[in-house]
């Protein structure tokens, strides 16, 4: 397409004459250099983020060591800064968010691409995008002032009562040993994060599903397949990989989402399997405690930031690589 011919064109110029390049006006070369610098700035910022935040958190990394960092004791008053509870909280809320958001997002993506006609698809996309337009802090405000007070007596409390003592479900949704369920909890945070990552997972899944060749779909229909059979036989095998990428991206978003989680997760440093109990996540603890943190405390919070940055970078690189490979493969086929 466009990029191909642009490539050929620039290669032609470069190959035809060095002399021509010498004669290019100064302004032209300055502009090219400026554009290159702007492009390199992205790489510079990413490197600087890692270097500067790591530099500010060396006190923590140095003093606590690996065992200290991955311990469960978080006690700023006694200078004990173990991050494991926050890592656990981040993982558990992100996983809840993904489990809740992915089936819904993929279903909406299928609805948009395979079921509704194009002129209906656009307004539906607008509505889904509205989810992304509502700022994180507004989700948090709604979560902490409206949703959590409502959901505790109407859903959490009856569910916890009903599942008390039930083997697996009781461990997840029953009342914890420390007491009754709480409105702000791991599950509340996971649920609100699920709403927040739905738009991105939906739009990426839709992009992937849209690359399924029409001729394959028509072939399935011609063989007498129903829509569901067509989706399972043609769309799913074709877009599996890309959807995995979309899921990973959603996971990355959910791990890094700060303000909504900070408001609804309950701010309690504990590791428990009880999802209806309050907990804490990495970004939430940074947001809530950074204001009063100095010395090693601040260094520990910045260090948690470094860990979070590395985690999200790994997840995002993986996700983008999976998506890119999948798109290339389906285009090539």
């Amino acid at each position: 397409m466009t990029s191909h011919s642009a490539r050929a064109d620039s290669a032609g110029i470069a190959g035809s004459a060095r002399a021509l390049a010498e004669r290019r006006p100064l302004g032209d070369r300055v502009f090219q250099a400026l554009a290159l610098v702007a492009g390199l700035l992205v790489l510079a910022i990413l490197v600087l983020i890692l270097v500067s935040t790591t530099q500010q958190s060396t006190t923590w990394f140095g003093k606590e060591g690996i065992t200290g960092i991955f311990s469960t004791t978080w006690d700023p008053a006694h200078n004990k800064f173990g991050a494991l509870t926050f890592i656990y909280g981040t993982a558990i809320t992100a996983v809840i968010a993904v489990i809740l958001a992915v089936p819904v997002s993929v279903a909406i993506a299928l609805l948009l691409t395979e079921v509704v006609p194009y002129r209906w698809a656009r307004p539906i996309v607008y509505v889904i995008d509205l989810l992304a337009v509502v700022p994180s802090v507004v989700w948090g405000l709604w979560g902490v002032q409206v949703f959590a007070p409502w959901v505790l007596p109407h859903v959490y409390a009856p569910v916890a009562r009903a599942l008390k003592g039930v083997p697996v479900l009781g461990n997840l949704f029953g009342p914890s040993t420390s007491g009754a369920p709480s409105g702000p909890a791991f599950f509340t945070a996971g649920l609100i994060l699920a709403f927040m990552i739905t738009p991105i997972v939906t739009s990426l899944s839709r992009e992937v599903i849209a690359t399924v060749p029409t001729i394959d779909k028509e072939g399935a229909y011609a063989l007498g397949a129903t829509r569901l059979e067509m989706i399972r036989g043609v769309v799913w095998p074709h877009s599996q990989g890309g959807i995995v990428g979309a899921v990973l991206l959603g996971l990355g978003r959910a791990m890094g989402e700060t303000i909504a989680a900070a408001l609804v997760i309950g701010s309690s440093t504990q590791i428990t399997s009880h999802l209806l109990s309050p907990g804490y996540s990495m970004p939430a603890v940074i947001a809530n405690q950074f204001g009063e943190a100095f010395g090693e405390f601040r260094s520990a919070l910045l260090g948690i930031g470094v860990l979070l940055f590395l985690l999200t970078i790994i997840v995002n690189v993986l996700a983008r690589a999976v998506v890119a490979r999948n798109v290339q493969r389906t285009r090539g086929a």
Binding site: G39, V42, G256, L308, F309, R320
Partner: peptide, 30 residues
């Protein structure tokens, strides 16, 4: 402009584009 007009299909260009994608996923708190 660099990525689309000047970069061509060079490794550096693809790397910048990839990292820009990755950067959209860096949490805002970072």
């Amino acid at each position: 402009i660099y990525i689309n007009e000047y970069g061509g299909n060079r490794l550096l260009t693809r790397f910048i584009r990839f990292m820009a994608d990755v950067m959209t996923g860096v949490p805002s708190i970072i």
